[in-house]
Design a protein around this nucleic acid. Structure first.
Lengths: 145, 145
DNA sequence: ATAGATACTTGATTCACTCAAGCATCTACC
DNA sequence: GGTAGATGCTTGAGTGAATCAAGTATCTAT
């Protein structure tokens, strides 16, 4: 499991293709994470840390409760993959940064997660453009602030 | 959270479009499930029950441990959404079936999960075909039995 | 007739997630 | 300048998903 599974009754061919694609993407993501001893949530968080960022901000970006982030970051910190720094101007806030280990591990994870790369590799430049355009157009049909 | 978040460093435009699409799909799926008091895993399982199916088979389809299914099915059964029937020929096996309530709830869930429908609604028939074709072609690049 | 495979369950653990409280600090307003 | 309320984070309690290791019952094949 570990990965959402879509409606079995997907009616149109396009809907089924979307589902298969999403399912494969999710599975590949999880597999790559596990290969590096990361959970999906941990890989997720680690991936956001390209810049210094506060817990609150992180929680908002990921759409979850701040206390959830506290835990995940604590586990990452215990493995010395991230560190909490004091915010220079606001002593309530903790800025999270990746350690060199964290950066290296995340790079290795992305390297393993070849799904998106392999997927596009099979398409010509023109097809890639088309796909991106169609996906965006499809997404626009689904209003979502 | 609750939903995988892709590589922030996605390099090409097509890769970013894929990620955005997958992310939106997953979030929509979870939201629809929650609206009906289902977890993603529960919606997932419920969706597979278009036919009578054993626990083992279910676990294999979803790629998880049988004991995981035991738990999820137990929770669904407690809400009278599914039932365990004895297998006619094999007394070890339990056949899971949706109750009428389960079927109704799942139908309502699918109704709520308008993501795929909305997404395709925005595309012409020709574009839908193109998208399906491109997604399949992209998927083929990612070998995965 | 029994040895081993198979189907499911139980129990123990871990992690993700949410909510409610709590503490420290910041901000605004009087 | 001091206090009220907002904000940032943590802690604790509770639920669910997931995995693994064992255990029981039943089936299969020799």
């Amino acid at each position: 499991m570990a990965v959402p599974t879509g409606p079995v009754t997907a009616s149109t061919d396009a809907e089924r293709a979307m589902f298969d694609f999403v399912d494969a993407y999710d599975r590949a993501y999880e597999t790559a994470a596990l290969e590096h001893g990361l959970s999906v949530a941990q890989a997720c968080v680690l991936g956001r840390l390209t810049r210094q960022i506060g817990m609150r901000e992180l929680a908002d970006e990921l759409g979850c409760d701040a206390s959830n982030i506290t835990q995940i970051v604590s586990r990452l910190e215990a493995r010395d993959l991230v560190r909490r720094h004091p915010h220079p101007d606001d002593r309530r806030s903790r800025q999270i940064v990746r350690t060199p280990d964290g950066t290296a591990l995340y790079a290795a994870f992305e390297e393993s997660f070849e799904f998106a790369r392999s997927a596009t590799a099979n398409l010509s430049a023109r097809e890639q453009d088309q796909l991106a355009t169609l996906l965006r157009k499809a997404l626009n049909g689904t209003a979502k602030p």
